[in-house]
């Protein structure tokens, strides 16, 4: 029962395809505090899998539960809200909102998650990432490494149960990639969340609790 409660992501019998079968996953779970590396060759459906978890795509078959809630039972609006509330996403290309400041990017995540807007928590996150001094800067004024940290902070700003990172280290050198991984692990654990890192970056293998090859879970 406790193990069940600790699972923040449960995937069963998941099938999805465009023209040809793309995703076929019998079982995939992620627990709180767990860091799972999801790997696979290019074109194997890693990003599609993230979109399915986020409820942005509808599976042909199967079930996805986020924090115990089955996405197939929800309307689109409810899925949007569940995603906002329980999921944090770090995009490969970061996708910080360019028109607002660093701190407002974090507050925007809190606002769309319908949780309490907690500026001090957001500032604390930035302090832990060592970029509090940049909080009033616009994303265009940041270096790639700084922007990466802001994206990590934004994914955690609303205290999600699950953080999904899509190729978070692909644009970083070895030192920054190791830093980014360490920070994501520490902060997700501190936030009592599970972490899924989708990557083909071999450097990540060393930093995760377990590695799942998307081709092996069918």
């Amino acid at each position: 029962m406790t193990a069940e409660k600790n699972r923040v992501l449960q995937v069963e019998d998941l099938e999805f395809h465009y023209d040809q079968p793309l995703i076929n996953i019998a079982k995939f779970d992620v627990a709180r505090h767990e860091c799972v590396g999801l790997i696979g060759p290019s074109g194997c459906g890693k990003t599609t899998f993230i979109h399915l978890i986020a409820g942005l795509l509808q599976p042909i078959r199967g079930h996805i539960q986020i924090n115990g809630v089955d996405l197939s039972q929800l309307s689109e609006r409810e899925t949007d809200r569940l995603r906002g509330r329980y999921m944090g996403v770090v995009f490969q290309r970061l996708h910080l909102i360019p028109s607002v400041s660093v701190i407002d990017n974090l507050l925007l995540a809190q606002r769309f998650s319908r949780t309490k807007v907690d500026r001090s928590y957001a500032v604390n996150l930035l302090e832990e990432l060592g970029i509090a001094a940049l909080k009033e800067k616009k994303p265009s004024q940041l270096s790639q490494g700084q922007a990466q940290r802001v994206a990590i902070a934004r994914s955690l700003a609303h205290r999600p149960a699950l953080v999904v990172a899509d190729e978070p280290t692909s644009a970083l050198d070895d030192g920054n990639a190791a830093d980014a991984m360490r920070l994501m692990r520490t902060l997700t654990a501190h936030a009592d969340a599970g972490l899924v890192i989708v990557t083909h970056d071999q450097r990540v293998r060393r930093e995760v609790d377990r590695v799942v090859n998307l081709g092996d879970v069918a």
Binding site: D80, G84, V89, H95, S113
Partner: peptide, 16 residues
Amino acid sequence: RHDLAVMRCLGATRGE
């Protein structure tokens, strides 16, 4: 369009 899609990922509804 990417920013708007990201907002959806952050939890924004179509209506928002």
